[in-house]
Protein backbone atom coordinates (compact mmCIF):
# COMPACT_ATOMS: atom_id res chain seq x y z
CA UNK A 1 0.00 0.00 0.00
CA UNK A 2 2.76 2.49 0.91
CA UNK A 3 4.46 1.78 -2.38
CA UNK A 4 1.34 2.72 -4.31
CA UNK A 5 0.84 5.73 -2.07
CA UNK A 6 4.33 6.95 -2.82
CA UNK A 7 3.79 6.45 -6.54
CA UNK A 8 0.55 8.41 -6.37
CA UNK A 9 2.24 11.26 -4.51
CA UNK A 10 5.01 11.27 -7.07
CA UNK A 11 2.41 11.51 -9.81
CA UNK A 12 0.71 14.45 -8.09
CA UNK A 13 4.07 16.16 -7.85
CA UNK A 14 4.61 15.38 -11.51
CA UNK A 15 1.30 16.93 -12.49
CA UNK A 16 1.65 20.09 -10.41
CA UNK A 17 5.37 20.74 -10.78
CA UNK A 18 7.02 18.72 -13.53
CA UNK A 19 4.26 19.20 -16.12
CA UNK A 20 4.30 23.02 -16.04
CA UNK A 21 8.08 23.14 -15.81
CA UNK A 22 8.49 20.77 -18.73
CA UNK A 23 5.99 22.56 -20.98
CA UNK A 24 7.07 26.11 -20.23
CA UNK A 25 10.72 25.14 -20.01
CA UNK A 26 10.61 23.61 -23.46
CA UNK A 27 8.74 26.47 -25.07
CA UNK A 28 10.63 29.36 -23.54
CA UNK A 29 13.99 27.77 -22.77
CA UNK A 30 14.91 24.65 -24.63
CA UNK A 31 13.30 25.42 -27.97
CA UNK A 32 15.02 28.76 -28.60
CA UNK A 33 18.31 27.41 -27.22
CA UNK A 34 18.37 24.36 -29.46
CA UNK A 35 17.27 26.14 -32.64
CA UNK A 36 19.99 26.16 -35.34
CA UNK A 37 19.51 29.91 -35.76
CA UNK A 38 17.72 32.83 -34.20
CA UNK A 39 13.95 32.37 -33.81
CA UNK A 40 11.87 35.48 -33.30
CA UNK A 41 8.30 35.03 -32.04
CA UNK A 42 6.10 37.87 -33.16
CA UNK A 43 2.57 38.34 -31.88
CA UNK A 44 0.44 39.82 -34.63
CA UNK A 45 -2.45 41.60 -32.91
CA UNK A 46 -4.73 44.33 -34.17
CA UNK A 47 -3.14 47.77 -33.58
CA UNK A 48 -5.72 48.59 -30.89
CA UNK A 49 -4.42 45.55 -29.01
CA UNK A 50 -0.77 46.39 -29.47
CA UNK A 51 -0.05 45.62 -33.13
CA UNK A 52 3.10 43.64 -33.82
CA UNK A 53 4.98 42.66 -30.68
CA UNK A 54 7.88 43.23 -31.17
CA UNK A 55 7.45 45.81 -33.91
CA UNK A 56 11.14 46.27 -34.57
CA UNK A 57 13.60 43.56 -35.55
CA UNK A 58 17.33 43.85 -36.22
CA UNK A 59 19.24 41.26 -38.22
CA UNK A 60 22.60 41.10 -39.98
CA UNK A 61 23.20 40.38 -43.61
CA UNK A 62 23.97 36.72 -44.06
CA UNK A 63 22.26 35.82 -40.78
CA UNK A 64 19.47 33.27 -40.95
CA UNK A 65 16.42 34.04 -38.84
CA UNK A 66 13.05 32.40 -38.45
CA UNK A 67 10.12 34.71 -37.90
CA UNK A 68 7.11 33.03 -36.24
CA UNK A 69 3.94 35.03 -36.46
CA UNK A 70 0.94 34.16 -34.29
CA UNK A 71 -2.42 35.90 -34.12
CA UNK A 72 -4.23 36.16 -30.80
CA UNK A 73 -7.39 37.92 -31.96
CA UNK A 74 -8.51 37.85 -35.58
CA UNK A 75 -7.13 36.81 -38.95
CA UNK A 76 -4.21 38.86 -40.16
CA UNK A 77 -2.22 38.65 -43.37
CA UNK A 78 1.54 38.99 -43.16
CA UNK A 79 3.78 40.34 -45.89
CA UNK A 80 7.26 41.83 -45.91
CA UNK A 81 8.42 44.50 -48.34
CA UNK A 82 9.42 46.32 -50.30
CA UNK A 83 10.97 44.31 -53.04
CA UNK A 84 11.22 41.00 -51.19
CA UNK A 85 8.08 39.45 -52.65
CA UNK A 86 7.27 37.84 -49.31
CA UNK A 87 3.60 37.20 -48.57
CA UNK A 88 3.17 34.60 -45.85
CA UNK A 89 -0.58 34.70 -46.27
CA UNK A 90 -3.21 34.65 -43.63
CA UNK A 91 -2.51 33.87 -39.99
CA UNK A 92 -5.68 32.74 -38.27
CA UNK A 93 -6.14 33.15 -34.52
CA UNK A 94 -4.24 30.48 -32.63
CA UNK A 95 -2.17 29.53 -35.65
CA UNK A 96 1.52 30.05 -36.11
CA UNK A 97 2.99 30.86 -39.53
CA UNK A 98 6.73 30.96 -39.86
CA UNK A 99 9.27 31.92 -42.46
CA UNK A 100 13.01 31.49 -42.47
CA UNK A 101 15.00 34.24 -44.13
CA UNK A 102 18.58 35.07 -44.97
CA UNK A 103 19.24 38.59 -46.24
CA UNK A 104 22.05 39.15 -48.70
CA UNK A 105 21.90 42.93 -48.68
CA UNK A 106 21.35 45.54 -46.03
CA UNK A 107 18.28 47.72 -45.93
CA UNK A 108 15.18 48.73 -44.07
CA UNK A 109 12.08 46.64 -44.66
CA UNK A 110 8.55 46.61 -43.32
CA UNK A 111 6.55 43.65 -42.12
CA UNK A 112 2.91 44.53 -42.31
CA UNK A 113 -0.64 43.24 -42.19
CA UNK A 114 -2.29 43.09 -45.60
CA UNK A 115 -5.70 41.87 -44.46
CA UNK A 116 -8.16 44.36 -43.04
CA UNK A 117 -8.23 43.50 -39.33
CA UNK A 118 -9.52 46.52 -37.44
CA UNK A 119 -10.18 50.22 -37.73
CA UNK A 120 -6.52 51.00 -37.35
CA UNK A 121 -5.48 48.11 -39.57
CA UNK A 122 -3.02 50.16 -41.61
CA UNK A 123 -1.01 51.02 -38.49
CA UNK A 124 -0.13 47.35 -38.15
CA UNK A 125 3.43 47.56 -39.33
CA UNK A 126 6.84 46.68 -38.01
CA UNK A 127 10.36 47.60 -39.05
CA UNK A 128 12.89 44.98 -40.07
CA UNK A 129 16.38 46.50 -40.18
CA UNK A 130 19.04 44.49 -41.95
CA UNK A 131 22.47 45.77 -40.95
CA UNK A 132 25.52 45.30 -43.05
CA UNK A 133 28.34 43.22 -41.59
CA UNK A 134 30.15 46.46 -40.71
CA UNK A 135 27.11 47.50 -38.69
CA UNK A 136 25.89 50.16 -41.11
CA UNK A 137 22.37 50.64 -42.34
CA UNK A 138 21.84 52.24 -45.77
CA UNK A 139 19.90 55.49 -45.61
CA UNK A 140 16.52 55.32 -47.29
CA UNK A 141 16.77 56.55 -50.88
CA UNK A 142 14.79 59.57 -51.98
CA UNK A 143 11.99 59.16 -54.48
CA UNK A 144 12.79 61.20 -57.62
CA UNK A 145 9.13 61.35 -58.67
CA UNK A 146 8.10 62.98 -55.39
CA UNK A 147 11.16 65.23 -55.42
CA UNK A 148 10.20 66.38 -58.89
CA UNK A 149 6.62 67.14 -57.80
CA UNK A 150 7.89 69.13 -54.85
CA UNK A 151 10.31 71.01 -57.12
CA UNK A 152 7.43 71.77 -59.49
CA UNK A 153 5.44 73.13 -56.57
CA UNK A 154 2.59 70.70 -57.03
CA UNK A 155 0.44 70.33 -53.95
CA UNK A 156 0.04 66.57 -53.62
CA UNK A 157 -2.66 66.97 -51.03
CA UNK A 158 -4.76 69.58 -52.84
CA UNK A 159 -8.41 68.75 -52.87
CA UNK A 160 -9.40 67.59 -56.32
CA UNK A 161 -13.08 67.03 -56.22
CA UNK A 162 -15.31 69.96 -57.21
CA UNK A 163 -12.57 72.06 -58.86
CA UNK A 164 -13.57 70.99 -62.33
CA UNK A 165 -13.34 73.61 -65.08
CA UNK A 166 -14.59 71.36 -67.81
CA UNK A 167 -17.97 70.72 -66.27
CA UNK A 168 -19.26 69.71 -69.66
CA UNK A 169 -16.73 66.89 -69.86
CA UNK A 170 -17.95 65.35 -66.65
CA UNK A 171 -21.23 64.43 -68.21
CA UNK A 172 -19.36 62.48 -70.87
CA UNK A 173 -18.76 58.78 -70.42
CA UNK A 174 -15.35 57.89 -71.79
CA UNK A 175 -15.11 54.85 -74.05
CA UNK A 176 -11.49 53.83 -74.54
CA UNK A 177 -12.58 51.10 -76.98
CA UNK A 178 -14.22 53.67 -79.22
CA UNK A 179 -11.23 55.96 -78.77
CA UNK A 180 -8.83 53.23 -79.89
CA UNK A 181 -10.75 53.00 -83.17
CA UNK A 182 -10.74 56.77 -83.62
CA UNK A 183 -7.07 57.39 -82.76
CA UNK A 184 -5.48 56.45 -86.15
CA UNK A 185 -7.65 59.11 -87.85
CA UNK A 186 -6.77 61.86 -85.40
CA UNK A 187 -3.76 64.11 -85.21
CA UNK A 188 -2.08 63.26 -81.94
CA UNK A 189 0.16 66.09 -80.73
CA UNK A 190 3.67 65.05 -79.77
CA UNK A 191 3.17 65.85 -76.08
CA UNK A 192 0.07 63.69 -75.85
CA UNK A 193 1.69 60.77 -77.60
CA UNK A 194 4.58 60.63 -75.10
CA UNK A 195 3.77 58.00 -72.48
CA UNK A 196 6.28 59.44 -69.98
CA UNK A 197 4.71 62.86 -70.28
CA UNK A 198 1.23 61.38 -69.74
CA UNK A 199 2.29 60.47 -66.21
CA UNK A 200 2.90 64.11 -65.35
CA UNK A 201 -0.16 65.61 -66.98
CA UNK A 202 -3.88 65.25 -66.65
CA UNK A 203 -6.27 63.58 -69.03
CA UNK A 204 -8.21 66.83 -69.21
CA UNK A 205 -5.15 68.65 -70.54
CA UNK A 206 -4.52 65.92 -73.12
CA UNK A 207 -8.14 66.21 -74.25
CA UNK A 208 -7.72 69.96 -74.67
CA UNK A 209 -4.55 69.46 -76.73
CA UNK A 210 -6.26 66.85 -78.87
CA UNK A 211 -9.21 69.15 -79.39
CA UNK A 212 -6.87 71.96 -80.51
CA UNK A 213 -5.13 69.63 -82.97
CA UNK A 214 -8.43 68.24 -84.28
CA UNK A 215 -10.95 71.10 -84.29
CA UNK A 216 -13.53 69.07 -86.17
CA UNK A 217 -13.58 66.19 -83.71
CA UNK A 218 -16.46 66.12 -81.27
CA UNK A 219 -15.90 66.46 -77.58
CA UNK A 220 -16.84 62.83 -77.09
CA UNK A 221 -14.33 61.75 -79.74
CA UNK A 222 -11.58 63.67 -78.00
CA UNK A 223 -12.35 62.29 -74.57
CA UNK A 224 -12.56 58.76 -75.92
CA UNK A 225 -9.25 59.08 -77.74
CA UNK A 226 -7.55 60.45 -74.62
CA UNK A 227 -9.09 57.63 -72.57
CA UNK A 228 -7.68 55.09 -75.05
CA UNK A 229 -4.23 56.58 -74.52
CA UNK A 230 -4.64 56.56 -70.73
CA UNK A 231 -5.86 52.97 -70.56
CA UNK A 232 -2.77 51.12 -69.35
CA UNK A 233 -1.21 48.97 -72.01
CA UNK A 234 -0.24 46.33 -71.33
CA UNK A 235 -2.70 45.83 -68.47
CA UNK A 236 -1.03 45.69 -65.04
CA UNK A 237 0.09 42.21 -63.93
CA UNK A 238 -2.35 39.99 -62.04
CA UNK A 239 -0.40 40.56 -58.80
CA UNK A 240 -1.50 44.16 -58.91
CA UNK A 241 -5.18 43.27 -58.59
CA UNK A 242 -4.32 41.25 -55.49
CA UNK A 243 -2.23 44.13 -54.14
CA UNK A 244 -5.18 46.48 -54.65
CA UNK A 245 -7.64 44.08 -53.00
CA UNK A 246 -5.39 43.50 -50.01
CA UNK A 247 -4.34 47.06 -49.37
CA UNK A 248 -6.78 49.44 -51.02
CA UNK A 249 -10.19 47.79 -51.50
CA UNK A 250 -11.36 48.01 -47.90
CA UNK A 251 -11.47 51.83 -48.11
CA UNK A 252 -11.73 52.63 -51.81
CA UNK A 253 -14.02 49.72 -52.71
CA UNK A 254 -13.31 46.73 -54.90
CA UNK A 255 -14.37 48.64 -58.01
CA UNK A 256 -12.95 51.96 -56.90
CA UNK A 257 -16.38 53.27 -55.99
CA UNK A 258 -15.05 54.97 -52.88
CA UNK A 259 -17.70 53.16 -50.88
CA UNK A 260 -15.88 51.77 -47.89
CA UNK A 261 -16.81 49.27 -45.21
CA UNK A 262 -19.55 50.44 -42.92
CA UNK A 263 -17.18 50.15 -39.96
CA UNK A 264 -14.57 52.44 -41.44
CA UNK A 265 -14.74 56.07 -40.53
CA UNK A 266 -12.12 58.06 -42.37
CA UNK A 267 -11.45 61.76 -41.86
CA UNK A 268 -12.48 62.40 -45.45
CA UNK A 269 -14.27 60.35 -48.07
CA UNK A 270 -11.96 57.83 -49.73
CA UNK A 271 -11.22 58.83 -53.31
CA UNK A 272 -13.47 57.23 -55.92
CA UNK A 273 -11.32 56.10 -58.84
CA UNK A 274 -14.38 54.94 -60.69
CA UNK A 275 -15.51 58.56 -60.73
CA UNK A 276 -14.26 59.97 -64.03
CA UNK A 277 -14.67 63.56 -62.92
CA UNK A 278 -12.21 62.91 -60.07
CA UNK A 279 -9.65 61.25 -62.28
CA UNK A 280 -10.01 63.66 -65.22
CA UNK A 281 -7.87 66.25 -63.45
CA UNK A 282 -5.60 63.84 -61.62
CA UNK A 283 -1.99 63.41 -62.62
CA UNK A 284 -0.64 59.87 -62.45
CA UNK A 285 2.51 61.02 -60.69
CA UNK A 286 0.35 62.68 -58.03
CA UNK A 287 -1.52 59.40 -57.55
CA UNK A 288 1.85 57.70 -57.29
CA UNK A 289 2.99 60.21 -54.70
CA UNK A 290 -0.23 59.89 -52.72
CA UNK A 291 0.19 56.12 -52.56
CA UNK A 292 3.83 56.25 -51.55
CA UNK A 293 3.68 59.18 -49.19
CA UNK A 294 0.10 58.94 -47.94
CA UNK A 295 -2.44 61.71 -47.88
CA UNK A 296 -1.77 64.46 -45.40
CA UNK A 297 -4.85 65.30 -43.38
CA UNK A 298 -6.69 62.24 -44.59
CA UNK A 299 -6.56 58.67 -43.37
CA UNK A 300 -4.71 57.55 -46.47
CA UNK A 301 -1.64 55.73 -45.17
CA UNK A 302 1.76 55.70 -46.83
CA UNK A 303 2.73 52.66 -48.82
CA UNK A 304 6.21 53.80 -49.88
CA UNK A 305 7.78 51.59 -47.23
CA UNK A 306 5.83 48.55 -48.43
CA UNK A 307 5.92 48.68 -52.24
CA UNK A 308 8.62 49.11 -54.86
CA UNK A 309 8.26 52.07 -57.26
CA UNK A 310 7.31 49.76 -60.13
CA UNK A 311 4.64 48.09 -57.98
CA UNK A 312 3.29 51.54 -57.22
CA UNK A 313 3.16 52.51 -60.91
CA UNK A 314 1.36 49.25 -61.60
CA UNK A 315 -1.18 50.22 -58.93
CA UNK A 316 -1.66 53.63 -60.58
CA UNK A 317 -2.27 51.83 -63.88
CA UNK A 318 -4.75 49.57 -62.08
CA UNK A 319 -6.60 52.66 -60.82
CA UNK A 320 -6.87 53.97 -64.39
CA UNK A 321 -8.22 50.58 -65.35
CA UNK A 322 -10.92 51.00 -62.71
CA UNK A 323 -11.75 54.47 -64.02
CA UNK A 324 -11.90 53.64 -67.68
CA UNK A 325 -13.30 50.13 -67.45
CA UNK A 326 -15.94 51.17 -64.96
CA UNK A 327 -18.50 52.14 -67.56
Amino acid sequence: MMKRERLARLLVLGIFVALPLALLGYQYGLRPLTAPHRVIDIVAAAPEAGGFQPDSIQVQTGETVTLRFSAPDVTHGIAIGPGLGIDIGSVEPGQVREITLTFDHAGTFTFYCNTWCSRDHWRMRGVLSVYDTDGSLPAPSRDPVIDQLVAEGVDIDAAHSGQTNHTEAVALVPSPERGAVLLPNLTVPHEVGNSQRRRTHTLAEAAALLQAANPTASEQDVIDAAAALWLPSPAPPADTARLYQQNCAACHGETGSGQSLSTITTASEPAAFADFSYMLHMRSDVLYAKIRRGGMGTDMPNFGTLFMPDETWALVDYLWGLTLAAE
Binding site: I15, L23, P72, P93
Partner: peptide, 29 residues
Protein backbone atom coordinates in the same frame (compact mmCIF):
# COMPACT_ATOMS: atom_id res chain seq x y z
CA UNK B 1 -10.72 6.28 -7.70
CA UNK B 2 -7.36 8.06 -7.18
CA UNK B 3 -6.03 6.55 -10.42
CA UNK B 4 -8.90 8.07 -12.38
CA UNK B 5 -8.60 11.33 -10.47
CA UNK B 6 -4.90 11.55 -11.32
CA UNK B 7 -5.80 11.14 -14.96
CA UNK B 8 -8.42 13.89 -14.87
CA UNK B 9 -6.14 16.04 -12.72
CA UNK B 10 -3.51 15.80 -15.44
CA UNK B 11 -5.98 17.00 -18.09
CA UNK B 12 -7.33 19.65 -15.71
CA UNK B 13 -3.86 21.03 -15.00
CA UNK B 14 -3.10 21.07 -18.70
CA UNK B 15 -6.37 22.96 -19.27
CA UNK B 16 -5.34 25.61 -16.72
CA UNK B 17 -1.80 25.88 -18.13
CA UNK B 18 -3.03 26.26 -21.70
CA UNK B 19 -5.55 28.83 -20.51
CA UNK B 20 -2.87 30.89 -18.79
CA UNK B 21 -0.01 30.53 -21.25
CA UNK B 22 -1.61 29.46 -24.53
CA UNK B 23 -3.25 31.40 -27.32
CA UNK B 24 -6.15 33.69 -26.40
CA UNK B 25 -8.03 32.25 -29.41
CA UNK B 26 -10.48 29.91 -27.70
CA UNK B 27 -11.06 27.57 -30.62
CA UNK B 28 -7.33 26.83 -30.74
CA UNK B 29 -6.81 26.49 -27.01
Amino acid sequence: QPALMLLTLFVFTLAILTGWFGTPAGSRN
